[in-house]
């Protein structure tokens, strides 16, 4: 994977698909899915930045056969994203539980229908 900015372009495309899903779909669950896509693309961005070509996973290896010091990829983005993934699922669950409550109060999870109800009342 040594072709320049390819990872960043994929990141941008995924980010925009996620953003478009959030903005254009009125179903609240679909919006949450869009947010998840958005989140995943940011993870890809961070991990791409941490990669060093020819590097290895940041776990110390004892027996180096050819004697050269191993190149480790940057562990810092890994740490940030590792925790962000778990925090992300926790907050997604919080959002989904709000969706469930909205469904119970309004009988629908469609944003436009909820707004119509509000105007009609």
């Amino acid at each position: 994977m040594s072709f320049g900015f390819f990872n960043y372009w994929v990141f941008i495309i995924l980010l925009m698909i996620g953003l478009y899903t959030v903005m254009s779909r009125s179903n609240l669950v679909k919006k949450m899915i869009g947010l998840s896509l958005f989140q995943i693309s940011v993870f890809l961005f961070y991990i791409s930045m941490g990669k060093i070509s020819g590097g290895t996973a940041p776990i110390v290896v004892e027996n180096i056969t050819d004697g050269a010091a191993p190149v480790y990829s940057n562990p810092l983005p890994h740490v940030l994203i590792l925790t962000a993934i778990v925090v992300g699922i926790a907050t997604t669950a919080l959002g989904l539980s709000l969706v469930v409550r909205i469904r119970e109060s309004f009988g629908t999870i469609d944003e436009e229908e909820i707004l119509e109800m509000k105007d009609g009342a």
């Binding site: 995943i40 990669k51 996973a57 983005p77 890994h78 994203i81 590792l82 993934i85 699922i89």
Partner: peptide
């Protein structure tokens, strides 16, 4: 995994 982030891949597979 291909980007050397084994811990993150682990988490993503289990969580995502």
């Amino acid at each position: 995994i291909s980007l050397d982030a084994v811990d993150v891949a682990f988490t993503e597979a289990a969580v995502g």
